[in-house]
Amino acid sequence: MTERQVSAVPVVDAAGRPLGVISERDLLAKSADQGEYFRSLPARESWEQDKAEALRAEELMSAPAVCAKPDWTVAEAARLMEAHRGGPLGRP
């Protein structure tokens, strides 16, 4: 992600259909589990702990994928993102 200068990557199935997204935020939960400082912080939400323990993309990704259509304007895509901000998991 750093090499390509992107902050998120899609997770797709064998047919290329989007299933979810792995973002820098998802990876932070995983890397934060590594240091003593982070282990000393208050208990995590259960979804944060699940991400920290993830071994597979499907366990780490944010899902379901919310997809804009190729012909949409940036404003239309932004409205879709705002509508799903809380998401089905209840977090931004």
Score class of each variant (00 low, 15 high):
67 C>K: 11
92 P>G: 08
39 R>L: 13
15 A>T: 02
42 P>Y: 03
51 K>L: 09
51 K>P: 00
15 A>E: 08
76 E>P: 01
58 E>V: 13
61 M>D: 02
41 L>K: 08
50 D>G: 02
70 P>M: 09
11 V>R: 09
5 Q>R: 15
52 A>C: 07
25 R>Y: 05
37 Y>W: 13
59 E>L: 03
38 F>Q: 10
76 E>D: 11
52 A>S: 13
15 A>V: 01
53 E>N: 14
55 L>H: 13
67 C>F: 06
4 R>K: 13
29 A>K: 15
16 G>R: 06
33 D>R: 15
41 L>H: 02
44 R>T: 07
5 Q>E: 14
48 E>C: 05
78 A>I: 03
83 A>E: 15
51 K>D: 00
11 V>T: 02
37 Y>M: 12
5 Q>I: 11
22 I>C: 05
6 V>Q: 08
73 T>Q: 06
41 L>P: 00
90 G>W: 07
71 D>G: 03
5 Q>V: 11
55 L>T: 11
27 L>N: 05
60 L>N: 05
75 A>M: 13
72 W>P: 01
10 P>Y: 10
70 P>R: 15
35 G>P: 02
41 L>D: 00
1 M>P: 04
22 I>A: 08
30 K>W: 13
24 E>I: 03
76 E>V: 07
28 L>V: 07
21 V>E: 13
50 D>M: 06
54 A>T: 06
77 A>N: 01
88 P>V: 14
39 R>G: 05
54 A>F: 07
57 A>N: 08
78 A>F: 06
33 D>G: 14
